[in-house]
Design a protein around this nucleic acid. Structure first.
Lengths: 252, 252
DNA sequence: CTGGATTGTTGATTTGGATCAATAAAAACT
DNA sequence: AGTTTTTATTGATCCAAATCAACAATCCAG
């Protein structure tokens, strides 16, 4: 079943986990945790009806967990692996609006809508926990507490978006990409995953679409960062060598 | 039909309301309305303690209603006039992250934070309604219902932000500015204000900061749009002549 | 394994928008 | 009123990133 056998010279040293994204985020590190806590984690044991919280659902690479225009019913937390969310407006080309890693939530932006405004697709073999928002009232848990949690995480989402807008539009390609790498790194670290060595599970084109750059530019800047010694880059694998330099580059 | 033209030469024909932004949005058209409804509008008459909802508070041009890092306690709805919100990160220059017009909410992004992540400043003589989130529990109203409303408006905020990011980073200066004008127009219309003739109460620099463009570029594109006949431009006053063209330009 | 499709890298050229700079026009103040 | 300060327009130049293009590496299906 295995053959980790990676690119580099000492392939057997390569943790299999990193390659196949089998690393699961701990529940305490997951964005859904405040809500799961209220639901008491184990549905069966706590009188919460089945189907309110579906745990550790596997998703194959390339599969979607929902598509743009699908009716909204659930938010998801990435348990392992990674996802991209994208939108497509009336014939215009598809654009990436975000990437999600273990512990992070997907579908939050649909919360006040009838349908999902974007498509969420697995970038690799992944797993998700699913919270049926439409069935929350049946859970028998105090709605007030649940809503308070939801308000929390929506608020965080808004703040993040605002920061993203205000930074992206004012930054050069080098700033955007340095910032992107740092952001990935810190997001992975925050959820208890290795933050200095990781795989860019998305394509250069995806990164470009997300950051508003041509894929060639992404490629060029990445190799430049590699040459400068700030990172080590081998194909999709990133090794952050000099976080300091990256921070300076991001700031400009 | 006749040529639309500005009434600048005949200043007395100028609707005073437009010039001095005395136009108030109707409560039914206000983003705070769902919450005000629960609070029954008139506090005194409904047993809601004073100070939960402060109505029609006047704000002078240039004044702030809150500053970045101030402790969070309230969200605001613009009743008349207009505002800009801006952020400043560690020494870097101040950036505009949004404009708010009558009926729109300010401070929503602070909902899950301890402090406001931005500063809100009046672009002209304005007025706001203030909702003390921290005193909501004292209102004696069902918290569930209030929270549900808050979730609604946070969700909308998230959606708007996402659209903004995904469009801005991929658009040319002309697309951004056409889109900006259309956005202003439709936002004003939605709240029952004139949407084809309005004042750009913010400076070119503010617009540029918001859209990620140099103020010179904003100026140039606006005059170009004026020459092409899509808009009529006189200083801060905008007259939308050809919405169709603007839409095409926005799409690219 | 082989051949084709996809994805990534690198080079050459073009261009949109930033930047620098000089006025012009309004506002704000005295 | 006139004077200063701020804000907007327009021009000239330069550069970062898009685009066009060729090629290399990798993945995948048969």
């Amino acid at each position: 079943m295995d053959k980790p056998r990676f690119s580099t010279h000492h392939s057997q040293c390569e943790p299999q986990a990193i390659r196949d994204a089998l690393v699961e985020v701990d529940c305490e590190d997951c964005g859904l945790d405040p809500i799961c806590m209220v639901l008491d984690y184990a549905e069966e044991a706590s009188g919460v009806p089945e189907g309110v919280l579906v745990r550790r659902h596997p998703v194959e690479r390339g599969e979607t967990i929902f598509r743009q225009e699908d009716p909204f019913h659930s938010i998801f937390a990435v348990k392992s692996g990674s996802f991209k969310t994208s939108v497509e407006y009336a014939g215009r080309s598809r654009q990436i609006i975000g990437f999600q890693f273990p512990g992070e939530l997907i579908g939050v932006e649909a919360m006040s809508q009838k349908t999902y405004p974007c498509t969420a697709r697995a970038l690799e073999r992944s797993s998700v926990c699913q919270l049926r928002i439409d069935r929350l009232p049946e859970s028998g848990r105090p709605l007030e507490t649940l809503q308070a949690s939801i308000i929390q995480l929506l608020g965080r989402e808004v703040t993040f978006s605002h920061q993203l807008v205000s930074s992206l539009v004012h930054q050069s390609a080098e700033q955007r990409i340095s910032g992107f790498l740092l952001s990935l790194s810190s997001r992975l670290t925050r959820r208890g995953m290795p933050g200095t060595e990781f795989i860019l599970t998305m394509s250069r084109t995806d990164i470009g679409s997300y950051l508003g750059l041509a894929s060639e530019t992404v490629s060029r800047v990445l190799t430049r960062l590699g040459r400068s010694g700030a990172i080590r880059l081998r194909r999709k694998r990133i090794l952050i060598l000099d976080r300091n330099t990256l921070e300076q580059l991001t700031a400009g």
